[in-house]
Every structure is written in structure tokens, then in C-alpha cells.
Design a protein around this nucleic acid. Sequence first.
DNA 1: TGTATGCGTTATGTATACAATAGCGAAGGG
DNA 2: CCCTTCGCTATTGTATACATAACGCATACA
Lengths: 250, 250
Amino acid sequence: MAEREVDRSISQTVKAQLALRDQILSGSLRPGERISELQAVETTGASRTPVRMALVRLEEEGLLEAIPSGGFMVKAFSERDISDSIELRGTLEGLAARFAAERGVSARELEPLKECLAAIDELLRQVPISIEAFSSYVTLNARFHAVLTELSRSPPLIRQIDRASALPFASPSGFVMAQSALPEAQQILIIGQEHHRVVIDAIENREGARAEAIMREHARLAVRNLRLALRNRTHLDLLPALALIKTATD
Amino acid sequence: MAEREVDRSISQTVKAQLALRDQILSGSLRPGERISELQAVETTGASRTPVRMALVRLEEEGLLEAIPSGGFMVKAFSERDISDSIELRGTLEGLAARFAAERGVSARELEPLKECLAAIDELLRQVPISIEAFSSYVTLNARFHAVLTELSRSPPLIRQIDRASALPFASPSGFVMAQSALPEAQQILIIGQEHHRVVIDAIENREGARAEAIMREHARLAVRNLRLALRNRTHLDLLPALALIKTATD
DNA sequence: TGTATGCGTTATGTATACAATAGCGAAGGG
DNA sequence: CCCTTCGCTATTGTATACATAACGCATACA
């Protein structure tokens, strides 16, 4: 071992994966750009083996694309890709809600969901909402969606939803942030909260079809709003999707 | 390099991945069993680096599970996992069919689908169907589903469907094989063919909701039949899922 | 006899050396 | 002047050596 600095607190592979993901999402690496292993070794501080493992995982995650002749490049997404990904996740979450409703959920298990709901209600009482409250909203909303997914009790479905959320713009936090750029943001959050309320009610009453339908509607609303947000490209700095959008699409 | 025999025709990583997948699906490696890298090196003929890459990919594919203390084990699936995976794929294919219908598909693009349909019709004319014809059916059916998926023109969705089909029992071929174990197999194939006919018609007439509904029904039928097939465990040798089912489930 | 601790072995995580290929540039011929 | 070909360089693919951590066994003490 040479004079390489080694951080032994976490696995080198995980360290490299986090560092590379960060570079991609922050825009240091541009869409379409080839990722050089050597360069990744320098920027992440890990050696080539863990870097390669990280690259494979990021490819599976959907952030990278394998180049046929070898190596990887940062994947580029069209606006259509992004809205499809959101609708896709909505469809999956709809299935999760239906499973939860049909298979039955005890009052005890529904508790965390209701807590999220109440906490968000509290936040939305502020008009206009503060930056800090909005930030809490993002966290609570992500938690709501995660808990709902878990309630499906279906490991294959949970796994698939996690993968569908790996892309930043398709994650619950991602598109909420995008929506925040719109002037009618507050109204949008309130409508979203109504969806949350309905899905809980549908699950409680074991109405699978209704639970599924509302989650899909929830996603369709998100798609419409994301489209609008991408039109007004005002203060979109918040939007982590931006770093991944194909240049010169449309 | 020692006296190791190296096959230079394909990448060592791919070779190892194929070999390991084969071992898993053939049952050489049992569910829950830990995979030793050293052993994998011996059985695949590749060295540790490509073997590790293959293991990471197989984990992402869903065939392996990472062990917290290090290494990988063969993933075990419950019967519920299997039926959920099929329903999941049906839901995704439903979305694909809806996208195809809503976005519009030219007569030219629909041609391959109709060819599959006609070819399957031809096969089903035999009563009872021969083994060779059944084998052709499996291939044609897989092709039908693959083409339909492509018609969605949605790369994120296509990607997700591919991943949902990675598990052998969730692939179109897998569950058709399972159904073949049932006494009413011929009747089931005929009903499935009706679904195929309806989805084409719905896409042609741009009826998104109908196209989606029929694909979901198609999957639900498959789930019911798979459940039945797993009850009569007669000649289930055909079923590649069997190697992955948890021992002592139910 | 049972439990705990320490040592040894084995397997995984990491680093690096080596091999091969693809891409690019320069030079020569048509 | 353009096209083709040869060779070099840079980057990826592969192999293996080394470091480290976990598991198991044995032994000793309670």
C-alpha cells in the first residue's frame, strides 16, 4: 500500500458509489459524458476495483449507461422519459395501495401514515409556507410514500418501487421540489394532501380499486405539474432532475 | 498468466454471469445457499474480478441477495412473491399497452404483433397440442409480449418490464410453462390468445383503458393458473421457478 | 460441564500489475 | 488533396497478490 489515504469507516465500494452519484446529480458529470475509470479513481479516492463495482451498480440504478465498446457514460433523459418514470412509479404505488387495501392493514400499522398526514396538515396551515416548512414537507411526503409502499407487504413490489424511485426526478422528493417552482405551489400541495387522505380512507375501508385509482391520479397530477415547472425554468435550482435532462430535446 | 484456459470469444464477466445464472436456475445452487467466490471461480473458469462483477449484476437482477457480513446468497422466493411478481409484470404491461394505444401505433408497427397472433392461432389448431408446437408457442408468446412492450415507446417502462421479467417465473415463458402442467392447458392457451386478440384491437382503436385492462386480466389469469399448477406438482420439471421456491413455505 | 476467550483458518474487500483492444493521429500512396 | 493503413497511446478487461475481518474450534477457567 502506497501513500493512498484510506477511509476505513465505510466500504470503499459504497464510498465510490455515493461520490459518483453525487457527481452525476450535481452536474459535475454531464449527460452523455463518458466516465473514465481513472478519473473516477482520482475523484473518489477508491481504487479501480471498488470503482468498477460502483459503476456497475449505478448502471443498474439507471444513472449510467454501458457503452458497447466498453466503459460507461452518464445517461441522458428526455422530458418524456421523466414524465413516464413518474407515471410508472404512480402505477406501481397504485398497485401497492391496492395490495394494502385488499390484504388488510391493522389500525396499528396505519398509524405512521396518519401521523405523516397530520404533520403535513400542520405545515400547510402556514400561508405562504416557509422554506423550512417546505423542507419538512419534502421529508414527510417521502416518508408517507415509503410507508405506504411497505404496507403492500410485497417484497417484489417494494423492490421495484425502490428502483423506480432511484432516478431523482422520479422520487417523491424530486418532483415535489419541481412543483415548488410553480406559482400555485401551495394549492398543489393541498391537493396532494387530499390524495393522501383519500388513500388512507380507501385502505381502511378495504376499497382496493379506489386506493389504486387515487395513487395513479396523484402521479398524473405530478406529471402535469412537472411539465409546467419545466416550462417556467425559474428558480429550478432545487430540481435535481435538471442535471440529467438531455440538452436540446423537444 | 498460469495454465488457466481462457475463452476469448466472449467477455469473462458475461461468461461468469451466464454460468452462475444457469447454476441457480438449474438448482445446482439451492435457495438460501451462500455462494463462495472461490467456488464460483472454479466452476465458471473466470477469475475473481469478473466473477464479482457477475455477482453484483445477479444481485441487481434479483437472483442473489447480499449478505450483510459480506458475500451473496441465492435468493429464496415464497409462492406469494411469485404471484406478486407476475401481477406486477401484468400491471407494467398494462401500462405499456395503454401507452401504445394512447400514443398511437401505425399499421406497419402492429404487423409483427399480428404475425405472432396468426402463428399462435395456427399452432392451437392442433388438439391436443404437440410438444414441439407447445415449444413454438412459448417462443411466440414471449415475442408477442416483447413486441407489445416495445410499442409503448417508453424506454423507462421497457427497462422496468425487462427487470420484472428477469425472474424466470415472472417471464412470459416461465408461467406459460407452469400452466402447461394443468389438465385444462389447451383451454388456457386459447383464452390467453383471446386476450392477445383483444389487446391488438384495443390498440388499433386507441382505447387505452381497454388495452390496459385486458393485459392486467391476462396476468391475473396467469396468477390463478400458476397457483393451481403449484398445487398439482405433477410434471413440473418444466418450471424454472421451482428451483427458487422457498423450501417449507405455505 | 458450560461458557468465554483467543488463535487460526478461510473468505471477502481492496489494490495493483498485466493484457488486449479500440480510437486517434500521422504518414504514405493513389 | 483525399483516402487508406499502420502504429501508438490511452483506457478498459482480467488476473492475482495482499489486507482484513469473520467464523469456528479448541482450550482453559469457572
